[in-house]
Amino acid sequence: MMKLTECQCAKVSYLEDDELIKDTALRIKKKHPQITESDVTYLPRLKAAFEYANTIPLKEENTRRNFLLLETFYPDFYQNPEVDKWLRTPNGYSADQRLEDYKHVMINRERRRL
């Protein structure tokens, strides 16, 4: 069995995260062709959001992708103090569930044009 050093493990994790961000960006742009933001600004914005998501921490890959989807349509949404508090405050639900709840609130607000 091959053993990796801590530095090597960190590099593998970084590469996996980077691939997840790029793949998610590609999927979002394919599904929503109205997104025309250049990758020069779009990918670093998603990277910053992903780094924040890791501090919550979000565990499920699908939830991390949803976080990036929210960032796409609501830039810097997580920097709002109320959103940050909601995502970080343990209330009996996981951070993944709190994000899913927030996503549904935002979807419903869009549908009602609030």
Rank of each mutant, 00 (worst) to 15 (best):
L4C: 06
N66L: 15
L4Q: 09
D17S: 02
F73I: 13
L15F: 03
K85C: 07
Q34I: 04
L43T: 12
R45M: 11
S13W: 13
E51M: 12
F50Q: 11
E16I: 08
A49E: 02
E6M: 11
A25R: 00
E51A: 14
R65A: 04
K85I: 00
K11I: 04
Y52H: 08
S13E: 15
K103P: 00
L58E: 09
A48E: 03
P57C: 14
E37L: 11
K31A: 13
T55Y: 12
A95R: 01
Q34W: 03
Q8W: 03
T55C: 14
R113N: 13
T24P: 03
F67C: 11
I35P: 01
A53E: 05
C7P: 09
D18I: 01
R112H: 12
L20C: 02
T5Q: 07
K30I: 05
R109K: 08
K59W: 11
C7E: 11
A53I: 05
K59A: 14
Y74G: 06
P44A: 02
P90M: 13
L46Y: 07
A48V: 07
A10T: 01
T5E: 03
Q8S: 08
W86D: 15
L20Q: 02
M106R: 07
L15N: 05
C9E: 08
E61K: 15
A53D: 03
A25M: 01
R111G: 11
Y102I: 10
E19L: 12
L26K: 03
T72K: 08
F50W: 10
V40T: 13
W86S: 14
H32N: 09
F50A: 13
A48D: 05
K30F: 05
R64Y: 01
T41Y: 07
Q97E: 08
N54V: 11
F73S: 10
T55P: 09
P44T: 03
Q79A: 04
M1E: 01
R98A: 06
I28H: 00
V40Y: 10
F77H: 12
T72D: 11
Y102R: 07
E16N: 13
T24I: 06
